[in-house]
């Protein structure tokens, strides 16, 4: 019995989501392998070998895997699946895209967004946008699982000494072609791995006003997020969205500014350690979950917060 993890990366660097997934894997079994599929991704493979607790790294490094298309990556995983009792990926858009294909090809179920390992065959996962928590048991020979990274601490990225093994077999993807990618560039930490997040809602009033949050975020080394209302109003791009249909986050500190606290937003951030809400409506539901609530006009409070930090 061993666990295989599909590494999350961009061919240049290993993404932290992989480290949380390693912790989940180690909760299942001590023999954890990582599969790196990409192009010119040696640096990623090296980083995977250094993760504490990983014993082997499989590397499929070929131009056909540059964009990690689900069609051929899933077939590649199925080829190596025989040795494994569990196949895991972080529940990122890449993991969510690829792993159900693997499960279907193996004729087994997939368990999505697992937040806790109870036993090697029993897992906990949120359903109904986190409004209910299911404990499920799988008798499938291979358990295919996506891991909600906020449910597990990150494994150490150093101290490991895994052996690396190349996978020479190349599987083409001729029915799906990559055209382009627009990835937002930012100096700020990634939303899903940031320890502090400053989020704005509809109360921000406009996209320009989101600049107000920059000063606070700069002082705290925070990522900037947004509610769905702010995204739908066109204030900010949708990759900032925190919530049921956006990103699920669990930072040490979450500062919700001008966010009312709709159920769908709370589903994405209620696991933050400390929640701060600043809103001028004292009846706003966000105050029901906030550790510290400040009833104030954000246009006064946010600049003051920036100067007092």
């Amino acid at each position: 019995m061993s666990v295989l993890i599909l590494a999350e990366h961009d061919n240049k660097s290993l993404k932290p989501a992989t480290l949380n997934t390693v912790t989940a894997a180690l909760d299942i079994h001590s023999d954890v392998h990582v599969l790196v599929v990409g192009a010119d991704c040696q640096a990623v493979a090296d980083a995977a070998c250094n993760i504490a607790g990983v014993s082997k790294v499989l590397v499929a490094d070929n131009a056909v895997y540059e964009h990690q298309l689900a069609e051929n990556v899933s077939k590649l995983i199925v080829e190596v699946a025989g040795e494994y009792s569990h196949i895991l990926a972080p529940a990122t858009t890449t993991g969510k895209n690829t792993l159900p294909r693997v499960a279907a090809l193996l004729d087994v179920a997939q368990l999505s967004d697992v937040i806790k390992v109870e036993a090697p065959d029993t897992f906990v996962r949120p359903i109904y946008a986190g409004n209910a928590i299911a404990t499920v048991k799988s008798n499938d020979a291979v358990k295919v699982i996506t891991v909600r990274t906020t449910g597990f601490d990150a494994a150490s990225s150093e101290g490991g000494n895994a052996v690396s093994e190349p996978l020479a077999h190349v599987i083409e993807s001729n029915k799906s072609r990559f055209v382009k990618e627009q990835v937002a560039q930012s100096d700020r930490p990634e939303l899903t791995s940031a320890s502090v997040i400053v989020s704005g809602g509809r109360g921000m009033g406009s996209g320009e006003n989101f600049a107000l949050l920059d000063g606070v975020a700069d002082k705290l080394g925070a990522a900037i997020g947004a509610s769905r209302a702010a995204v739908d109003a066109g204030f900010v791009p949708n990759d900032l969205q925190v919530g049921q249909t956006g990103k699920t986050v669990a930072p040490d500190l979450y500062i919700a500014i001008g966010i009312s606290g709709a159920i769908q937003h709370l589903a994405g951030m209620k696991d933050a350690k400390v929640i701060v809400a600043i809103n001028k409506d004292e009846e706003a539901p966000i105050f029901n979950v906030a550790d510290y609530g400040l009833v104030a006009d954000l246009f006064d409070a946010v600049p003051e917060l920036e100067t007092s930090l």
Partner: peptide, 20 residues
């Protein structure tokens, strides 16, 4: 299916804190 649901529970409630 080879998957059985053992239980479905309500999530831990988060209680509101203080107003500053």
């Amino acid at each position: 299916s080879n998957v059985t649901v053992l239980s479905v529970a309500a999530p831990a409630e988060r209680s509101g804190g203080v107003k500053v």
